[in-house]
């Protein structure tokens, strides 16, 4: 894979999830069905969010896609290739930035290039380009402990994108940020993704965030973890934060809320 300009389109991968099941055993010996019969097809270049309450298995599903966890049942294919270990065209952004504190921002971003044995000199321009796009270029030589939480998470995103991933997996990437930074990151992510246009699976707690960013939102319910709602989001891009009050946006919000209410995850106060 030849590195090109960071904004160049990099074709996304196709994901095929069939009958995936994952069972954990608790210390008491009880079986917890974290995932039950997940069937999903994710098209190349699709941005899919998974929302759901804590413990609904969304992170488990993401870990299986990442090749970091093995399912008990079923198959996952990326571009028709069975996932048995981390796919080389896949990159993950975790909730915590997980930066190496002894490396500068730039060296942190280039870490996967080193690990994969690619030529650093070829990827440096791409890293610099990414840093420019997220406003980190003046911090290239700084260390993580000199950055704010939002900036650190930007570094983590650059570290994923430098690999030109055909598949970007994000596990509540903005979960540890304050509300304002979070909104800005959401806008920035949309902008970056529109240029790269790869396949993204985005796990979040925030319904707003999911609708704003996605082509499709999957709502999961816990024990057994399964997909309760598969909602296509037809809002033209680029989307604006202000658009979150549009009737269309609100109707999506409504149907996701209703799903949570049906699950008993959201319970309204009784006012009768």
């Amino acid at each position: 894979m030849q590195p090109t300009d960071a904004t160049a389109a990099d074709s996304g991968v196709e994901i095929d999830i069939q009958q995936v099941q994952k069972i954990y055993e608790t210390r008491a010996g009880e079986e917890v069905r974290a995932l039950e019969c997940i069937d999903q097809h994710i098209a190349p270049g699709e941005f899919v969010s998974i929302v759901g309450p804590s413990g609904c298995g969304k992170s488990t599903l993401l870990a299986i896609l990442a090749g970091l966890l093995e399912q008990d049942h079923g198959t996952v294919r990326i571009n028709s290739q069975l996932v048995t270990r981390s796919h080389p065209r896949m990159a993950v952004v975790f909730q915590r930035d997980l930066l190496l504190k002894w490396r500068t921002v730039e060296d942190n971003i280039l870490l996967p290039v080193e690990v994969k044995g690619w030529k650093i000199s070829e990827y440096r321009p791409r890293a610099r380009d990414l840093m420019k796009q997220v406003g980190l270029i003046d911090f290239a030589r700084k260390y993580p402990d000199e950055l704010s939480g939002g900036m650190r998470q930007r570094v983590a995103i650059c570290r994923a994108l430098v690999q030109q991933p055909g598949l970007l997996l994000m596990d509540e990437p903005f979960g540890a940020l304050d509300a304002l930074t979070r909104e800005q990151m959401t806008i920035d992510l949309q902008r970056l993704w529109r240029r790269i246009n790869n396949t993204v699976v985005f796990v979040t707690h925030s319904i707003d965030e999911a609708i704003f960013l996605s082509d499709r939102v999957l709502v999961m319910s816990p024990r057994p973890g399964k997909i309760d709602l598969d909602l296509k989001i037809d809002i033209p891009r680029p989307r604006r934060l202000a658009g979150r009050t549009s009737p269309q946006f609100l109707s999506y919000l409504e149907s996701i809320r209703n799903t949570f209410e049906r699950q008993g995850v959201l319970v309204e106060e009784d006012v009768s």
């Binding site: 090749g67 970091l68 270990r85 080389p88 975790f94 997980l98 870490l111």
Partner: peptide, 20 residues
């Protein structure tokens, strides 16, 4: 979690040792 990060990049244990 750090080990998982390196694993997601396809790192071997040897690489994980030296880099992490």
């Amino acid at each position: 979690e750090m080990v998982r990060l390196l694993k997601s990049m396809g790192a071997s244990e040897r690489q994980t040792f030296w880099k992490l």
